[in-house]
Design a protein around this nucleic acid. Structure first.
Lengths: 304, 304
DNA sequence: GTCGTTCCATACCCGCAGGGTATCGGTTGT
DNA sequence: ACAACCGATACCCTGCGGGTATGGAACGAC
């Protein structure tokens, strides 16, 4: 009995995501027949049917769904192994911390200062990433990340809760609601909300690769109750500009109050779900430098 | 740039464990030259030196140590992917729970009974394993395991603490210390303690493969301060027999008091480190059947 | 020093697995 | 009924993964 190879897993994951051999082969930069054959071999080897194919549509069996999930995990682990090994070979090792700009609940300066005192501390590279932070930890692009729990999905990560924050609405100072003491989510119904770039899907793929949603030709506005999707913003400055111009209204964790422009009003949204600010790392990684950072972070967060 | 294959990783992990190309090749059932070549290719591909070789000895670089750890994790994940997929394809899915016999702190019956009430419950297969329980969860042979924290190493697992137990010494009724109310670890110095089979290394390997320690010819009694290693016991019955015969004295969690023979005395060891009883699962595995089991277990443990 | 042993690297060869092109055949929408 | 779509099959070929033979450096014995 042979062992599963990562190439086969990556083939299967791609097909399972596309549910279409032709497109999957395209994404994998190969022809469709060898791909079909490889998947068949995979199925025979583990003795399980993973896909139900008619010549018209492809769908996952229950076993296929679990292999999709497990396979993604394997591929992340492989990517992480490679990246972490490369970084371990660099002359001066460092920890990579991923966060959304302004998304640290104001805790990061204190954490870094306290960590620098630690005997096992090493340099900390802070990188800013909008979506993808959890994925970055999973596949080794980052060692730790600061996540906001409702949007982010910390499955498979080793997390520590730092704070729980309420949310506030950012409004142009001239907005009718700007004078209110508090708001409720219902008050903001119909307002245009900004979107951050693709938190869900992996925007990687080789250049010249088209967006999957663009491929279908229509903008997948499946749910008409959602207001017309707002403009895509990729950093806090852009967001502030759009708010100031009255183009969007944003709901963000209250700690961003610290760095907003004076022409923007900031009103608590009392019934918005509270946001848990987490610090997460990969579940293995027995590095004590990283463990120390987590420990210090928890202590700093403890005493507000 | 090509992707890392699991075959290469398994080659590297084997070499890194043996620190000897010849023996590694033997374990991998292949000749030594292709193995050397494969490792070189691996190093060139990721652009990092993993091993320092003189023609006399092989040693790991820091990067090599990282890849050894990450590689093991990948191989576990691959094995888990295959096994979980196979089990998902079985007509009637079940959860596999691994435990040491008598190692459940007396909680398991209650947990299983409560779990059976849960709406999403599925069948639970209980398997007994002496060492290896953590590894079984990591590589998919089990879905959850009951661990005893000091000996077991829950790195990379998602754990829930069920209880903390003190430890007791099992002595033959005729033993001079059997009448004591309490003991200290020092009192047991010099007593012969039983050993459980290979908690550390993987005893797998194809039949006809010799034990690595046997290969060196000597019994690796590197630390002479440890009393002459006791007999290996592989289940609780054997242990009880050996204790009753006065051949060994065992120190075990206090919950085993429930099922000892009448000719064995049981005395608390007050300064033995307390044992944390954990229930652990793999860090991903978003299966809600498993999540429910963990939840129920925590509740049952809560109310003693 | 020299010889023998050990052990990793190099040189060279071979078979098959993995990838490509051409084409078939079943399903579906018009 | 026909065209379009899409996965499966048939067939070829290159390159990679594996084998054997041998080189060459490092140590130990004497």
């Amino acid at each position: 009995m042979e062992r599963l190879e990562t190439r086969e897993l990556s083939y299967f994951v791609t097909v399972a995501e596309e549910l279409h051999f032709g497109r999957a082969a395209q994404r994998l930069r190969m022809a469709q027949p060898p791909l079909s054959r490889a998947i068949r071999q995979l199925e025979r080897r583990i003795g399980v049917t993973l896909l139900d194919r008619t010549s018209r549509r492809v769908s996952l069996t229950p076993a296929g769904r679990v292999l999709l999930e497990e396979g993604r995990h394997v591929l992340d682990a492989v990517a992480a192994a490679e990246r972490r090994t490369r970084r371990a070979a660099s002359p001066e090792p460092a920890i990579v911390l991923a966060m959304k700009s302004g998304g640290d609940g104001g805790l990061l300066p204190g954490i870094l200062a306290a960590y620098a005192e630690d005997p096992v501390a090493v340099a900390v590279d802070v990188v800013f990433a909008n979506g993808q932070r959890a994925a970055m930890v999973r596949d080794g692009r980052a060692d730790v990340a600061i996540l906001h729990c409702p949007p982010d999905e910390p499955t498979g990560l080793d997390c520590e809760e730092l704070t729980v924050e309420g949310q506030v609405a950012l409004l142009p100072a001239s907005h009718p609601l700007a004078a209110r003491e508090t708001l409720r989510v219902a008050d903001l119904a119909g307002e245009v909300q900004p979107r951050w770039p693709s938190d869900r899907t992996d925007p990687a793929g080789p250049p010249g690769e088209s967006d999957p949603s663009a491929r279908t030709g229509l903008t997948t506005s499946s749910d008409p109750s959602v207001p017309p999707a707002g403009p895509v913003v990729s950093d806090g400055i852009q967001l502030m500009q759009l708010v100031a111009l009255g183009r969007v209204v944003a709901v963000v964790p209250e700690s961003v109050r610290g760095h907003i422009r004076h022409d923007i009003a900031c009103v608590p949204v009392v019934d918005a779900p509270p946001v848990r600010v987490l610090i997460a790392r990969s579940e293995q990684s027995s590095s004590n430098a990283i463990a120390a950072l987590l420990r210090v972070a928890a202590m700093v967060a403890e005493r507000h």
